[in-house]
Amino acid sequence: MKKTLKFVLGAIALFAAMSARAGGISDTGVNAYWGSDSHGYGDVIGGSTYDIQGATITRVGNVLTIAIATSFAGHAGMDANITQNGIGYGDLFLAQTWNPFGTDANHVNDNDNNGTLWSYGFALDNRYSNTGGSFTLYQLNGKTNDANVIDSEKFMSCSLGSACYYRNGQATAVNTSKYNTNVKNTGMTGNWTVTANKEIKFTLTLASTSDLLKYSSLAMHWGETCQNDVIEGQVSLVPVPGVLPLTGLGLVMLGLSRRRRRVQAA
């Protein structure tokens, strides 16, 4: 029984080390992504509440997790005097490779017309919930982002007639209209949560046939419905350092199990 347990534990450890992948994107400092058009406000428009600090993308086995650190977590519905429902959480977009427009560090002229063509989108069930909910994974098959997404302009009305500034031309939501044949529901759904430590976390169990399981890198885009701050970038899904010791443990346990078997056979 003990030999069997050791073998199982060793196999689990080895599998975990081989399948766990993670990477991070920073949205602070001189190399933070700005995108177009900030109207001269730089990285963040409208105050620090909209600030995004970074994101971590993790894929363990077939479970994909994306955690976004942002001061906006828990503030959906704010600025209702500017637009009807206030500002909400945007959908999240993914691609295998990040191709932003421009060579400057902040990509100040990059938008969804000249930058990365997003391949997948997480469409949120209720972008104004401050606790979380579910989302649906859509495959974006249109040749341009305009064929697949809804921009920030569609969410911002400046309803009281006063001047308001937000980041224009940024991918904000998946265009899930029944008339849009470019967007395909993959049938995969996940959960998103707003945590107490100012984090929005998306968790999705991928089907075994999903392209997202094959990617060795992932690019992402996320922002509020006003896109007052946007995070974009790419991560290489490298092995998680914390599980590397488990590889050695797994190999040792497998070796011991085999050694004992040989001794008993002799």
Rank of each mutant, 00 (worst) to 15 (best):
63 V>L: 14
2 K>R: 13
49 T>V: 11
177 S>A: 14
21 R>M: 05
107 H>E: 09
232 E>K: 14
77 G>K: 11
58 T>Q: 12
157 S>R: 07
201 K>N: 10
109 N>F: 14
210 S>E: 03
187 G>E: 10
220 M>T: 13
241 P>Y: 04
16 A>M: 14
184 K>Y: 00
136 T>S: 13
155 F>W: 04
172 T>M: 04
172 T>A: 06
192 W>P: 06
69 A>R: 09
208 S>I: 09
196 A>Q: 08
246 L>V: 01
186 T>I: 08
151 D>H: 08
248 G>W: 03
177 S>L: 07
193 T>W: 03
173 A>D: 08
190 G>C: 07
260 R>H: 11
25 I>P: 00
112 D>T: 15
81 N>E: 15
244 L>A: 07
186 T>C: 10
112 D>S: 14
28 T>D: 13
219 A>D: 05
151 D>T: 08
162 S>G: 10
103 T>F: 15
176 T>F: 01
101 F>A: 15
6 K>N: 13
8 V>P: 03
257 S>Q: 06
54 G>A: 01
241 P>M: 01
41 Y>K: 03
96 Q>E: 15
222 W>E: 03
257 S>H: 04
244 L>I: 13
71 S>Q: 12
95 A>T: 13
216 S>Y: 09
257 S>G: 02
258 R>Q: 11
84 Q>C: 03
235 V>M: 04
243 V>N: 03
236 S>Q: 12
87 I>F: 02
225 T>H: 01
196 A>F: 05
232 E>V: 09
164 C>G: 02
148 N>H: 12
5 L>R: 09
141 N>L: 06
149 V>R: 02
177 S>P: 03
132 G>F: 01
38 S>D: 15
74 G>D: 10
212 L>Q: 05
45 I>P: 00
205 T>G: 05
265 A>R: 12
176 T>P: 01
235 V>A: 00
143 K>N: 15
254 L>V: 07
29 G>T: 08
141 N>A: 13
76 A>L: 02
233 G>W: 01
